[in-house]
Design a protein around this nucleic acid. Structure first.
Length: 305
RNA sequence: GGACAGGUAGCUCAGUUGGUAGAGCACUGGACUGAAAAUCCAGGUGUCGCCGGUUCAACCCCGGCCCUGUCCA
């Protein structure tokens, strides 16, 4: 059992700060489409400034889906996202409109393009127990355990990659079958899906400049106050939400770990690192069609149709 | 002006009883299937402040100079 690859959708993606949101709205308007956000952090209500969500005006201009659907204290997962996205696609098509995915979470993108196996959900107690084992016996100990029940996964995963090793052990524990038997989706490129993946592309130094300016703008717009408000709630940010770039660093700042200037500089640095990792995903996907943003801004978005 | 400490990678710093040097972070590349804005892996990028001396050989020893910090005048 797995989520199948999605069909006949357009995707607008690219590294953080590339300008996806604005181009997405323009493209959706020109093609009678609705937008499904493909962003793991924009799912959270109240995390607005640091995730650079579309503005109220943009959201009024084009219907946006899968924004603001969970509370910041909730956990979430790729599989939940994929399931929700498939539902939204059907719903939008029932209205006779087309779908445009906009966002920069590459794992979600790949899960949509290639499909995703339906495995057991995360078991926090199980994970905590194995993490304790890893801390006590060292990461190699878990890796050796995996090698006994799922040799292909053990072969594929680095011995220090404790997080994925734990997931593989979790799948075996819950299903009695090795994860490598389940995970076949990402390796084969489906044919004739009708999907189109546009990757907005900037020269590295220009993107870095844009990131620096955007982070400055986020702080000017009140990112620190937003985080302060989130921390003042009864329940603190979930493990997933609290690790978002801009949020994690500001939380630490508010806890007295470092001053504001250092925090701003660190958020810029982490955002640049995020953009670099996103780039690694896009390069690895044969589906990627790179679109130079310089040219796009100069000659209009018709080349995306 | 004097005393002391220091000047080694982009940054913070180790180190060499004399044989031209290495960690963390940054940076670059890669991986990624229910935490993914997370996590993991690989790669060393250098006038060892400057000038001279000793030596087969100086980043290290000696002399002078420059710079930074602290203290004393």
């Amino acid at each position: 059992m797995s989520f199948p690859p999605i069909q006949n959708c357009r995707f607008l993606t690219g590294p953080t700060g590339a300008g996806k949101t604005g181009i997405g709205v323009e493209l959706a308007q020109k093609s009678d489409a609705e937008i499904i956000s493909m962003d793991s952090m924009a799912l959270y209500r109240g995390m607005d400034i640091g995730t650079a969500k579309p503005t109220a005006i943009e959201r009024a201009a084009v219907p946006h889906h899968l924004l603001d659907v969970i509370e910041p204290d909730e956990q979430y997962s790729v599989a939940q996202y994929i399931a929700a996205a498939h539902e939204k696609v059907e719903e939008i098509r029932r209205r006779g409109r087309s779908v445009l995915f906009v966002g920069g979470t590459p794992l979600y993108l790949k899960g949509l393009l290639r499909g995703l196996f339906k495995g057991p959900p995360a078991d926090p107690a199980f994970r905590n127990a194995l993490e304790a084992d890893a801390a006590e016996h060292g990461p190699d100990w878990l890796h050796a355990r995996l090698a006994q029940v799922d040799p292909p996964s053990a072969e594929r995963l680095h011995p220090n990659d404790t997080r994925r090793i734990i997931r593989a052990l979790e799948v075996y524990e819950k299903t009695g079958e090795p994860m490598s038997d389940w995970q076949q989706q990402f390796n084969k490129l489906p044919e004739e899906t009708g999907n189109r993946v546009y990757v907005l592309d900037w020269p590295r130094h220009e993107l870095n400049d844009r990131i620096d300016r955007r982070v400055d703008a986020m702080f000017a717009a009140g990112l620190v106050e937003e985080v302060r408000g989130l921390m003042a709630r009864d329940r603190s940010l979930s493990k997933t939400a609290g690790q978002a770039v801009g949020y994690r660093e500001v939380i630490e700042h508010l806890e007295g770990v470092r001053n504001l200037d250092e925090t701003i500089a660190l958020v810029k640095q982490h955002t640049r690192q995020l953009a670099k990792r996103q780039g690694t995903w896009f390069r690895s996907l044969p589906e990627s069609r790179y679109v130079a943003m310089g040219g796009l801004l100069a000659s209009g978005i018709d080349q995306l149709q």
